[in-house]
Simulated scan of single mutants.
Amino acid sequence: MGLLYDLSTKYKTISIVGMAKNAGKTTALNYLIEEAMDEGMQLGITSTGRDGETTDLVTGTDKPRVYLYEDTIVSVPTQLYELAEAGLEIVRKSNYRTSIGELLLCRVADSGYVQIAGPVATADTKKMCAEMFDMGCELILIDGAIDRKSIASPETSDAIILATGAVLSRNLKKVVEDTSHIVNLYNLPVLEDGDARKLIIDHIKEDRIMLIKGDRAEKLDLLTGLGGSRFIDEAIDKDTEYVYIPGALTNSVIADIHPSRLKQVQFVLKDPTKIFIDAIGWRQLIKKGFSVRVLDNITVAAVTVNPFAPGGYSFDHGVLLEAMQTALPEIPVIDVRM
Rank of each mutant, 00 (worst) to 15 (best):
M1E: 15
Y5I: 10
D6C: 10
S8T: 08
T9W: 13
Y11M: 12
K12P: 14
I14H: 08
M19P: 06
A23T: 07
G24A: 06
K25T: 07
T27C: 03
T27L: 00
N30P: 04
Y31K: 09
E35Y: 13
A36D: 14
D38Q: 09
G40N: 12
M41V: 13
Q42V: 11
T48K: 08
D51C: 02
D56E: 04
V58R: 00
T61C: 00
K63V: 00
K63P: 00
P64K: 01
V66N: 00
Y69F: 15
Y69Q: 15
V74N: 00
P77K: 01
T78H: 08
L83Y: 11
G87T: 07
E89K: 10
E89Q: 05
I90L: 03
R92C: 13
K93I: 09
K93E: 13
S94V: 02
N95L: 12
N95E: 15
T98N: 01
T98F: 01
L105R: 03
C106L: 11
A109L: 01
A117H: 08
G118V: 11
C129E: 06
F133K: 10
M135S: 09
L139F: 13
I140C: 09
I140W: 06
I140N: 03
L141I: 11
A145M: 05
I151E: 02
S153P: 03
P154M: 01
D158V: 13
I161M: 05
V167W: 06
V167A: 08
V176M: 08
V176A: 04
D178I: 06
T179W: 03
H181S: 12
N184V: 02
Y186S: 00
N187R: 13
P189F: 10
V190M: 06
V190I: 13
I204M: 11
D207L: 04
I209L: 03
L211H: 03
K213C: 11
D215E: 14
R216Q: 14
A217G: 07
L220V: 07
L220A: 04
L222V: 11
L226H: 09
G228P: 06
A235R: 14
Y244I: 03
P246H: 12
G247W: 11
A248P: 09
A255F: 14
I257H: 12
I257C: 08
I257E: 05
H258L: 15
R261N: 09
Q264V: 07
V265F: 12
Q266M: 07
F267N: 04
D271W: 02
F276R: 05
I277R: 05
I277E: 04
A279S: 08
I280G: 03
R283T: 04
K287F: 15
G289L: 10
F290D: 06
R293D: 10
R293V: 14
R293A: 11
V294Y: 05
L295Y: 12
D296W: 08
V300S: 04
T304R: 11
T304N: 12
P310R: 00
G312D: 04
V319M: 12
V319S: 10
V319K: 10
L320V: 09
L321T: 12
E322Y: 11
E322L: 09
T326N: 14
P329Q: 07
E330N: 15
I331M: 07
P332L: 02
P332M: 04
